[in-house]
């Protein structure tokens, strides 16, 4: 049925395919099955209830008017923030200077920190009584703030944490992209006496665009499902005001112990990511071909 070469190829991909099947496909199928059933974690009756859970999720005002807007806002601002900071650092690191390797290594440290650990650290940094932020503010004569008690300051801290964690990832990839750019156009621009800003605007940025777009697509999809830092920093509070999609699904499945409804929420989120991913990949394709 298969030639020797085909059998060899199948053998090579078998372990990866098996892992994918066991740890990706099977859980998704089980989750999808649970989403159509009365499946409480403490008493899984597993009776078929059709689309009831889906209707409950997509008609939930909290999901529509708090969770989804929060999730998209977080996705846009977090990706944009980390991209800008990562690009700035990549540009700085792309110039030779003394201690460049050391700085580069130090800048990568956040990548090695577990998000939960980072979130705990940030929560204490912004603690209104013991946090260093308020100590500094009070030292310069400003009033310390209860950062996690108001929606937008809490949301800002979540963003800051995420940007801090992901900036090195952007830096690393964009730096690799910068170092692979041909030197000739930059040398020509230097001979013409072009300003640094114009070099960046009309040479660096357009030539780096394919790398930027790939980074943005991957990170945007990942940002959509952010859970750990939000759960640790605010738990979605105060009063659900910083709740993102993944927390919404988690609370339903594991706090309310309603695995059926939590799975339905996860599937709805998965479909949203799927649509978003398709749109973004088309965008990448168009940019790459441009």
């Amino acid at each position: 049925m298969f030639g020797e070469q085909q059998r060899f190829v199948l053998l090579l991909i078998a372990p990866a395919a098996l892992l994918l099947l066991l740890f990706q496909v099977v859980p998704i199928v089980i989750g999808a099955n649970a989403s159509f059933r009365d499946w409480a974690l403490y008493n899984p009756k597993k009776t078929w209830i059709g689309f009831d859970h889906y209707v409950a999720v997509i008609s939930d005002p909290a999901f529509l008017y708090v969770v989804l807007p929060n999730t998209f806002l977080f996705m846009v601002l977090s990706v944009a923030g980390a991209l800008v900071a990562g690009l700035a650092l990549a540009l700085l690191l792309n110039r030779p200077f003394r201690g460049q390797k050391l700085v580069q290594t130090i800048l990568l440290v956040p990548l090695m920190v577990a998000p939960v650990v980072a979130a705990i650290m940030i929560r204490w940094i912004f603690n209104d009584q013991f946090g260093i932020v308020n100590v500094v503010l009070e030292a310069i004569g400003l009033e310390g703030q209860p950062w996690l008690v108001q929606r937008w300051s809490a949301f800002g801290i979540i963003l800051l944490t995420d940007i801090w964690l992901w900036t090195p990832w952007f830096t690393l990839l964009l730096l690799a992209g910068l170092q692979s750019l041909p030197k000739e156009p930059f040398e020509a621009a230097a001979i013409d006496g072009t300003t640094t800003w114009r070099v960046f605007r009309f040479l660096t940025l357009p030539m780096l665009r394919p790398v930027i777009v790939v980074c943005v697509v991957i990170r945007a999809i990942d940002a959509f499902r952010t859970f750990d830092i939000v759960w640790t920093l605010t738990g979605g509070g105060p009063g659900r005001s910083t709740e993102l999609f993944s927390l919404y699904a988690y609370v339903l499945a594991f706090l309310n112990l309603d695995l059926g409804r939590g799975s339905a929420a996860a599937i709805v989120g998965g479909l949203i990511i799927l649509v978003l991913g398709v749109v973004m990949y088309r965008l990448v394709d168009r940019i790459a071909k441009a």
Partner: peptide
């Protein structure tokens, strides 16, 4: 009471009490 109290868990509240604040 501290303005940050609505976001406190028991550990944060206990820390303030144990710090003598």
């Amino acid at each position: 009471a501290p303005r940050g109290m609505p976001a406190y868990d028991r550990n944060e509240a206990n820390a303030i009490f144990m710090a003598g604040d």
